[in-house]
Design a protein around this nucleic acid. Structure first.
Lengths: 325, 325
DNA sequence: TTGTACGCGTTATCAC
DNA sequence: GTGATAACGCGTACAA
């Protein structure tokens, strides 16, 4: 190894301090920056990881990316961000691309499309075939892959218990794609809570939608016609849609019905009627995801199934049931 | 050149079709993916570009990143996304990092801190020293660097004219950092319109803030105490802050005062009181920024000063002045 | 047309 | 402890 590289990389050595200083001085004067491309080729480590998300415009993912990136940067890794727009073919395309870029690992929230049928098997195969360390973030498929997620079932169970405590028995639910563990888990949690009081949620009060504003509007229209006393949306964007419908129908929240969301994205706290919702601990999720990925990269054995609790944030949009309506 | 690389890269050649097919077939069977790292080292082109933004959580930047990435992907480029949190030192750090990663170019929205005093000169020097093609996006410094931005002065001028037409004479303004051309330009546009009717905006009605929600709350508190009939916020987040203050003071928009924002981020169209605002043509800005960058990379001479018009979106939050208040 | 040796910038290896 | 040199995986140039 050359003397220069020993010094510049702060390796253990016994080079005289004078020489060290001289080298560092020269490097600074020449504005020397090691070429990471050549370095990657030589070391077979790119010190970069890919992040794949379905929608960078969704506050949950934007904040996740931000936090994951901070953590990775602190550990000397750079980040390729990829946006799939919930499309399966983009998942595939981006993974192949990241493979050819020789990223050291991937943190991925699989697109909704990839969770339909057995599409996810293609993803798994691709990742395994390239023996690429990866962590599933928020959404995951069967078979105990490394993953970090919120305990959706528990959080939704607690929301439902809260609704029940406030006297709500006829509630409506707007789900995301039920092929996603997040949506399936949340629905399960809600059902569980109501089973405990021997009430079953009517099938027509379960609107199966997408994780977006428009599904909220669609679902809100139907559920409000069904005269439910509370609506539980599986993400905040949907809840905004329901608010819009309520306004159009001159219904006031929470007087005419209560509303609960999921995610606690920024806008939920500044709306006219502030939204009761479940906060996902994004900072912690990001930290854990990065730690897990780095452990996998460095072959450190560790817990690969990390489930974190959601936190119910109670705000204006939830109240006791109003039986006089 | 090897036969294989000629074929796989679809170069012009006169290799028999049979050989071509055979090579492609074999490549597919072996699941051959060229190693982009080695390729980059050999060609001295990484086919990647860096995007540096101050805040990925801001809808304007999230959507910009999304669109820029789509455009770049379509042209065979990958994207490193960097988030500076409006910090000057992060601008520097990320540029150096992208240099050592040998990106082919950079699209950057300079942090607010870098526009204070002469901090931007450091940025310019760094980019020039590494002779790195770059495009400034939305914010820019003096000296005609390559840039894509909205004509802020004109858009703000038009908003002011609109306010004047609705009878507003006593208006308040909440600015972003005035070191940014976007804020300075918008303020200039407003002043220009009012000068034309020989009205000058009172200094106490110009709240100099940051581009965020909290500045909106602060500014709203002051401006509403000053009894302005309209508030023009230089971004939508600030307008949300003003809405919050209005609600606390039981003032109704637009009955008690009118409100205008800038950016037209998604939430502005779904708020209880939908916000009048200026839409920035993000898709077009992204396209132009990428085209400009690719032209610079490929040494194609072109117009390097691209200014696009903003579009006023009129919604509920703006009305005729109410003199009875 | 086909094959072969060299260079890209760095680390790693192995003699000295 | 020091200093050459092979290796990383690809394009390129040049010779056959």
């Amino acid at each position: 190894m050359t003397t220069a590289s020993l010094v510049l990389n702060n390796c253990k050595n016994s080079i005289p301090q004078i020489t060290k200083d001289k080298i560092k001085e020269t490097a600074k004067v020449l504005n020397y920056q090691p070429n990471r491309i050549a370095l990657s080729l030589a070391t077979q480590k790119s010190k970069s990881v890919g992040i794949i998300v379905p929608d960078i415009s969704n506050g949950f993912f934007a904040d996740s990316i931000k936090n994951i990136q901070i953590e990775l940067n602190n550990n000397g890794y750079e980040v390729f961000v990829c946006n799939t727009d919930e499309k399966h073919k983009n998942d595939i395309r981006y993974i192949e691309l990241l493979v050819s870029r020789k990223v050291d690992g991937i943190i991925i929230t699989i697109s909704a499309e990839s969770m339909v049928n057995d599409n996810w098997k293609q993803i798994k195969e691709l990742l395994d075939y390239n023996s690429l360390p990866y962590v599933l973030y928020d959404r995951f498929y069967p078979g105990n892959p490394p993953k970090v997620y919120v305990n959706n079932q528990l959080a939704a169970y607690e929301v439902a218990k809260l609704l029940i405590a406030k006297g709500h028995k006829e509630i409506g639910v707007i789900t995301g794609p039920l092929s996603l563990n997040s949506s399936a888990g949340r629905l399960q949690g809600v059902k569980e809570a109501f089973q405990e009081i021997n009430v079953s949620i009517k099938e027509e009060n379960i609107f199966k939608g997408q994780y977006n504003y428009f599904s909220g509007k669609e679902g809100g229209l139907i559920l409000l016609k069904n005269k439910v006393s509370a609506v539980f949306c599986f993400n905040d964007l949907q809840a905004y849609g329901v608010m819009e419908i309520a306004q159009k129908q001159n219904l006031s929240i929470p007087k005419d019905f209560s509303l609960v969301g999921f995610d606690d994205i920024f806008y939920s706290s500044i709306l006219n009627t502030q939204l009761t919702t479940v906060r996902q601990p994004i900072t912690e999720m990001a930290k854990q995801a990065v730690k897990l990925l780095l452990d996998l990269i460095n072959n450190i054995s560790t817990n690969t199934d990390i489930s974190l609790p959601g936190e119910i944030i109670i705000r204006d949009s939830l109240s006791e049931v109003n039986n006089e309506r």
